[in-house]
Simulated assay, not measured.
Amino acid sequence: MMKSLIIDWKDLYFGVEIEFVGGNPEVVELLPGWTMALDERQIDDTGEESGSELQTPPILWEDREQINEMLLRLIATGARVNWNCGLHVHVSIDPWGEVAIPDFIDAAIQYQESVKNLFHTSEDRLVYCPPVTWEMRDQYLSAPGDAALRHKGRPQSHRCGINIAAWFDNRTVEIRYANGTLKYDEVITTVEFCLRFVAAIGARRKLSCTPKHMANDLGVPHTGYPPPIPAPLWYRERIWLENMFVPVLTPLVASIVPDSEILHILPRPDGLLVAIENTDGKISKYLFHLSSSGWKMKGKLPDS
Results as ranks from 00 to 15, higher is better:
Ile67Trp: 07
Pro25Phe: 05
Val91Asp: 06
Ser260Gln: 01
Ile43Phe: 14
Val127Ser: 09
Leu195Val: 00
Lys116His: 11
Ile7Phe: 03
Trp167Tyr: 10
Pro58Asn: 14
Pro155Gln: 05
Glu242Ala: 03
Val246Met: 06
Ala203Met: 04
Glu135Gln: 14
Val191Thr: 11
Pro221Arg: 02
Gly294Phe: 08
Met136Gly: 05
Pro228Gly: 01
Lys285Leu: 02
Asp39Leu: 07
Tyr225Asp: 13
Gly23Arg: 10
Ala166Thr: 15
Pro131Asp: 15
Pro269Asp: 14
Ile262Asn: 05
Ala100Glu: 01
Leu118Asn: 10
His213Met: 09
Ser291Leu: 09
Leu72Thr: 04
His158Ala: 08
Pro228His: 10
Glu49His: 13
Met297Phe: 10
Val16Tyr: 00
Tyr235Asn: 09
Tyr184Leu: 03
Lys206Asn: 12
Asp124Trp: 14
Asn82Thr: 05
Lys152Met: 06
Pro155Val: 11
Ile164Phe: 04
Leu233Tyr: 14
Ser291Trp: 10
Ala76Thr: 08
Ile109Trp: 07
Lys116Gly: 02
Ser284Asn: 09
Pro95Met: 07
Leu273Lys: 15
Gly15Asn: 01
Thr190Arg: 09
Ser291Lys: 02
Gly271Thr: 15
Val127Gln: 13
Asp185Gly: 08
Trp96Asn: 01
Gly161Val: 02
Gly145Gln: 08
Tyr128Ile: 09
Glu174Gly: 01
Arg137Lys: 15
Ile175Met: 08
Asp39Met: 02
Glu98Ser: 00
Thr56Asn: 12
Gln55His: 04
Met244Ser: 11
Thr35Ser: 15
Thr77Gly: 12
Ile256Val: 03
Glu65Asp: 11
Ala215Thr: 06
Ser52Ile: 02
Asp63Arg: 00
Cys160Pro: 10
Val115Glu: 04
Thr121Lys: 11
Trp134Leu: 07
Val198Ala: 02
Glu65Leu: 01
Pro25Arg: 02
Ala203Leu: 07
Leu31Gln: 15
Ile75Gly: 09
Pro25His: 03
Ala147Tyr: 00
Gly97His: 05
Tyr235Glu: 13
Phe119Thr: 04
Phe104Val: 04
Asp185Met: 12
Asn163His: 08
Gly219Gln: 07
Asp259Ala: 08
Gln139Ser: 08
Val89Cys: 12
